[in-house]
């Protein structure tokens, strides 16, 4: 008897605790449902229509201030959708990726923002969350995402600074573009981004596009390539095959030089050696470029090496 009581009490206690937690969660949800929304709204005029973003100045004042500033400076014009993960996010590229390079004034305005992580507000569908480097909490600059579903694993880790107010069908059109890895297979541009002070006046001339059905679209894949162009999921045996082909080509060209050296003269021999440099250089170029993402200098060193390769090629079949 005692035993069964001992068993029951914790069970009741557990029920109480779970009930309490649920209540606590619900009240939290109720709390976060109405964060203060700024008077200003940001509009992204994209390839598929307008996206209207509401901002939370009380939750993320630094982020809101920066995004309004960048929008007013025209920093988001000519940017694009960079990453789409169905059920998770639609991410806009950082502004260095714009079609038009930033002016100096614009580039200076793109500053890293201190993270404004809050446990009071949740990463739920429709919220806007700022992108940052995984290992640097204060590295957000201009890239951000629209959440397509709830993402509790981001809570307290990433800054929420607003929500999408209108543009559900636009997001669905973005989602309908086939993907290459996580990147859209065709450019989805932000043709213009601007700030609206009176959102009611805006909606008098633009129809509201609710977000209720946002994300309910099937997205297709075109290939395994990831957005940075690296081939993370390429089978190793393909890389091995490729290396073998390039090495064979180098050996073949070298053999050609050995066999023809008496007939072609030193200048032509140098040209054949340059062909080998080109083949080997191309192989290294393919192997090293994906590594530039994790190195500050490698990209520049690689670029200078490629420039050197082009200079060398201008010595090709030089007249004697």
């Amino acid at each position: 008897m005692k035993r069964s009581m001992r068993l029951r009490l914790p069970f009741v206690l557990r029920l109480l605790i779970i009930g309490g937690l649920l209540f606590f969660n619900t009240s939290l949800a109720a709390q976060e449902a109405s964060p203060q929304v700024a008077r200003e709204h940001i509009i992204f005029s994209t390839t598929y229509g307008d996206l209207v973003f509401a901002l939370y100045p009380d939750i993320a004042p630094l982020h809101v201030e920066q995004l309004l500033k960048l929008t007013r400076l025209g920093v988001f014009d000519y940017a694009q959708v960079m990453r789409v993960i169905p059920g998770f996010i639609v991410q806009f590229s950082d502004t260095y990726r714009r079609l038009k390079p930033l002016t100096r004034e614009q580039a200076n305005a793109v500053q890293e923002i201190k993270g404004e992580f809050s446990q009071q507000i949740r990463h739920t569908k429709g919220r806007l969350t700022m992108a940052r480097y995984d290992d640097k909490p204060d590295s957000a600059t201009s890239s951000f995402s629209i959440l397509l579903g709830d993402a509790p694993h981001l809570d307290g880790e990433y800054t929420i600074f607003g929500h999408i107010e209108s543009g559900g069908s636009v997001v669905n059109k973005i989602l309908s573009v086939p993907l290459k890895g996580e990147a859209p297979s065709q450019r989805i541009a932000i043709n213009r981004a601007y700030v609206v002070d009176d959102i009611d006046a805006y909606f008098q001339t633009h129809s509201r596009d609710p977000i209720d059905n946002m994300g309910q679209v099937q997205t297709t894949q075109l290939s395994v390539q990831s957005p940075d162009g690296s081939q993370k999921s390429v089978p190793q045996h393909q890389i091995n095959q490729l290396i073998a082909i390039l090495l064979s080509a180098i050996i073949l060209v070298s053999l050609l030089g050995v066999l023809l050296q008496k007939h072609i003269g030193p200048n032509r021999l140098v040209s054949l050696l340059l062909v080998n440099v080109l083949i080997g250089g191309f192989g290294l170029f393919m192997l090293l470029t994906p590594l530039t993402a994790s190195s500050t200098w490698l990209g520049f060193v690689l670029f200078m090496a490629i420039f050197g390769l082009f200079r060398l090629m201008s010595r090709f079949e030089k007249s004697s």
Partner: peptide, 26 residues
């Protein structure tokens, strides 16, 4: 012009072929 283009953190597209950036610092 070339280095500026290579500061991008993601790639470019040429007739549907995506190619990577060298991610040179700004």
């Amino acid at each position: 012009s070339t280095i500026r283009a290579e500061t991008s953190r993601d790639g470019y597209t040429f007739y549907g072929v995506q190619y990577p950036s060298m991610q040179i610092p700004q």
